[in-house]
Nucleic acid binder design. Sequence first.
DNA 1: ATACGGTCCTGTTCGC
DNA 2: TGCGAACAGGACCGTA
Length: 279
Amino acid sequence: MPELPEVEVIRRGVQRWAAQQRISEVEVTHPRAIRRHLPGAEDFRARLRNAVITSVNRRGKYLWLALDTGEALLCHLGMSGQLLITDDDAPVGKHLRVRFEFEEPGHELRFVDQRTFGEMLVDNPANGGPRHIEHIAFDVYNSEFDIASTTARIRKSNRGIKRILLDQTVISGIGNIYADEALWRAQLHGEHPANQLATGQVHDLISHVRALFDEAITAGGTSFDALYVNTNGESGYFSRGLSAYGRAGQPCRRCHATIVLERFMNRSSHYCPSCQPKR
DNA sequence: ATACGGTCCTGTTCGC
DNA sequence: TGCGAACAGGACCGTA
């Protein structure tokens, strides 16, 4: 699933291949893909046709293509979304949701999404970001991100620390995979109440998040120059580097105890019961 | 205000 | 062999 590193790799790819392109045509092939663009598909198309993509930006897991019209095309990939740059005559797959043709012939941008949790909408960028994501917190790469205030906020809550890592209004970009990995590196159990963690422990945890992201972006970054910006996140640039996620039943790389899988928050949590004890 | 479980989706895997 | 159930989980929403 695309989390921050996968989205960042896609951002770089789209920036590389679509920036400065003028959109000549837009075709919405599945209405659910723009369900939160309330004025509908015709309005969506009208706002994008003839617009020039000026830059490609990201906060957390959200991408937006800034346009010379002053508006922005906001995109969230959900579980299975992909942004593809393809030859404009490449065969259309079953899960194509939106396609964007460019004035310059040769290539086009496609939004492909099997499970349709992803979505796009045209929004007005206010204060450097679309209004629809004003509630999304900064991620560790945003220049506005402040580790001290984020740590303080985290330590005010009595919720489990994993819940907070996944709360995009506290710190953005972290999904289930990197949450489990960061907790493993920090040797913390996901249900540990955040207000019972020391400042240093929360700092350490955020540092691990940042390091994980750095490593995953580096691993995925090798594909920037490929024509096809193709990532579903699941193929995992980083799957070889995982220490907890998906390793249930296998030995902990640190202490050799067996990694445990538990259902938590309606999803899977992987942890080492020996070096990430519940208490 | 915060907290949290339910809901949306469909291709793949699993179990009977 | 076939078919239904379970599973994957990010964001949002209603309720407490």
